[in-house]
Design a protein around this nucleic acid. Structure first.
Lengths: 243, 243
DNA sequence: CGTAGGTTTGACTGATCTCAAGTTTGGTGG
DNA sequence: CCACCAAACTTGAGATCAGTCAAACCTACG
């Protein structure tokens, strides 16, 4: 299935190497995992709440998010994902999905059955540690999001989200943080920040009017990083150098 | 240090057994960990943001919370903890603390150096799996909190928090969920739900007026679980039977 | 070109915050 | 046992940030 230029192990190695130092035997073992790659369109669910997946997915290209809903239909995005991210690693040890995973853009993903991945994590402690640490960094990001949504103003929340996205993109090797393609709709930004799309629109305009960012179509430029960080109340420590 | 009736391994075994099935060798290994127990007053910090702890703490009795702050001083509690909870297990693999851990009541805690705990997690896969799963359930709770704070009404948020607290208390063996000692101040409830203490007060009164809960001093009774769940939009699936 | 999804704008509403003043509670020392 | 104090809780009035509803405008794409 996998062609040369979409070797699933490349982005995975890139990511895990940032989380723990791996030996060449570790790398070989990762490359030997039985990945199968596939393309998915934007808006496809990779996992649905209540599923009991027996594979884990790795995002090769494109963007995805995880989200859950209130019974009243309120939708909350709890994280964004990009190249190299293991989008549902928790299913290694948790049977039932407690949230959805959905692509935001079209994407290529690699899936691995849980069993060999689990075995690998056990047999090769360096890999196990990297994977565990990956889930811990995830958790740290969730904590920051609780703070973001709970205690920051609308403008600050949106700015914070943009800062995180920019830095994680850079760390994933997708380009500089000053200017980038921004795949989300304003309604998705709202779902991530606990706001309505209408208010997101107004806040983005204010950030533009203040000369902090510039937008064109689906592109964002961060013009003034200093003020951006300040408005966002952004301190990247919570990313634990995973970005 | 440890006397018989505050053997640190008891609540830990209780907790980990719910997360994975452990053999007697696993249990023995856990009991052999070099715990040291101590008492701490209410309001003490066990970990501060920026610390690089070399021990992990286990809560034996009492209550604690984890919280972080915006630079404007807004405080957000990101989780509550009780007997049996490993309050900072992420430091097994993450060097720098990204949030504070603080006692809410006086408490007894057991601490273990990271090194032997890490070794144990590796040498005894059942234990490693239980610990990893513990951090994954933590992460699931954070996700639910993002949803709670991001998309539910004030009353619903508070009700949700009470439901979670009641069930986790029960699972920890601290008594029935219908009526319990509630250790938090209204200001702490506000910090956990992203509200002000004034508004928390008004919402608690409404819940009381509607006959859903009753309060006396530091005690809460949940009179009508059905309506409570409904108001809270509460579905315990996200606790993954760890409660 | 027609259509659907996304963005923008305006007018109005309302949930929650702010500020400020009481009141109650629980603990402490005399 | 009482007097006092600080912390927690309660109440009210007014302000505000963000939501709602509704319409118009863009833009990508079949």
């Amino acid at each position: 299935m996998s062609t040369n230029d979409d070797d699933p192990s490349r982005p995975l190695l890139r990511k895990l190497s940032r989380l723990n130092s791996l030996g060449s035997a570790d790398e070989a073992a990762l490359r030997a995992l039985p990945f199968s790659t596939s393309s998915v369109k934007a808006g496809q669910f990779l996992v649905r709440e209540g599923d009991t997946p027996d594979t884990c997915s790795l995002l090769l290209t494109g963007y995805a998010c995880r989200h859950k809903e209130t019974s009243a239909g309120g939708r909350q995005i709890v994280s964004f994902h990009m190249s190299g991210d293991t989008v549902d690693l928790q299913h290694l040890f948790i049977r039932t999905a407690d949230h959805n995973v959905e692509t935001i853009t079209e994407a290529r993903i690699a899936t691995v059955p849980i069993k060999p991945l689990r075995d690998l994590a056990q047999k090769r402690p360096n890999i196990g540690e990297a994977l565990w640490r990956d889930t811990l960094v995830d958790a740290s990001i969730f904590r920051e999001w609780v703070l973001n949504v709970g205690r920051r103003s609308a403008k600050s929340r949106i700015a914070h989200m943009l800062c995180e996205f920019a830095l994680r993109r850079e760390a994933a090797g997708l380009g500089p943080p000053e200017r980038f393609d921004f795949p989300m709709t304003q309604s998705q930004i709202g779902d991530a920040t606990g706001l309505t799309s209408v208010h997101v629109n107004r806040m983005l305009q204010e950030l533009g009017d203040e000369g902090v960012i510039a937008r064109s179509k689906r592109e964002v430029e961060i013009i003034d990083w200093r003020r951006m960080r300040q408005i966002a109340d952004f301190d990247q420590a919570y990313l634990h150098a995973a970005a």
